[in-house]
Design a protein around this nucleic acid. Structure first.
Lengths: 156, 156
DNA sequence: TTTAGTGCAAAAGTTTTGCATGGTC
DNA sequence: GACCATGCAAAACTTTTGCACTAAA
């Protein structure tokens, strides 16, 4: 019998209640200067239940009266994504979303209706991947699994 | 012991040598009118080893002396994608690629250097997915696995 | 004070759309 | 003939970039 371990790493609400110092530390740990704007973007992602596009985040921050340029949001998201601080999700072509995720290798379960995102642990594809590489003469460097469904809230 | 079946469905070269009538039939089977332009786009995809963006296909066709508008390429790709005739792959944000794939559920193994694409069969995640749905109160509607690696040609 | 980050506006791309024209059934 | 598809050009968007200015180390 094969064991499958589904391991929830962290719920969104945990991040939402994290304190500013934690966000500073997160940036510091990657050698990223903790500027006001970067903390704003990171804070917005931390408070975000789901994922968000650059434009959505910019709109949200501006609506709250914060001052930040759209270009800065893009630059910050690119930086954070490069550094592995946030994940990039592409649900539909032309719709690039970002999300503050737990660290380490994981996958996503996304509600196709409300875009709610649940992080998933390992998916036990190890030996399948090994076989793949051998069969096609590829050296496999990574993989991603995106599971789509409808969450309980949206079913009701 | 767990069996993993890796099943190559069809190589690109098979498609490349397919005859025009097959493409017409493919369109007819979905109730899509076989216009000159649609056959052009489909033919280009059939001849394409890897995947291609709308712009790349338009450039390629124009370079060959074919007359077709860029908007038509976009419209045709959207139509074919909606009808499930072709697959949509998003390698990087803002880079939407299309590919004429075999039918049925499958996944992709993509070379990160040359964009060569190999189709993969089932990946045996069935019971993992069942557990997921139950654990998070989602009704799982689909999933995709994209494996990235470096192919033998690019390693050398 | 030296280096890095930001804002703004312009530019560069990609994709969509309106509408007159031409092709298919 | 009725309806659908196409081409072109314009529009709508998204994302990137140049450059002067400001903030952080």
């Amino acid at each position: 019998m094969r064991m499958i371990v589904v391991r929830m790493t962290r719920y969104r609400t945990d991040m939402a209640t994290e304190r500013q110092p934690d966000l500073r530390a997160l940036l510091a740990s990657r050698g990223i200067r903790p500027t006001r704007q970067r903390l704003l973007v990171l804070g917005a992602l931390a408070a975000e239940q789901n994922d968000a596009t650059a434009q959505q985040m910019h709109d949200g921050l501006r609506a709250r009266g914060e001052t930040i340029g759209l270009a800065t949001v893009y630059r910050t998201l690119a930086l954070l994504s490069d550094q592995g601080v946030i994940d990039t999700l592409v649900h539909r072509p032309g719709e690039v979303c970002y999300r503050l995720c737990s660290e380490g290798h994981h996958h996503h379960l996304v509600c196709s209706q409300c875009h709610r995102v649940v992080e998933l642990g390992e998916c036990d594809l190890g030996s399948w991947l090994d076989d793949l590489g051998a069969a096609h003469d590829f050296s496999v460097t990574g993989y991603s699994v995106e599971v789509t469904g409808v969450c309980a809230g949206c079913t009701a």
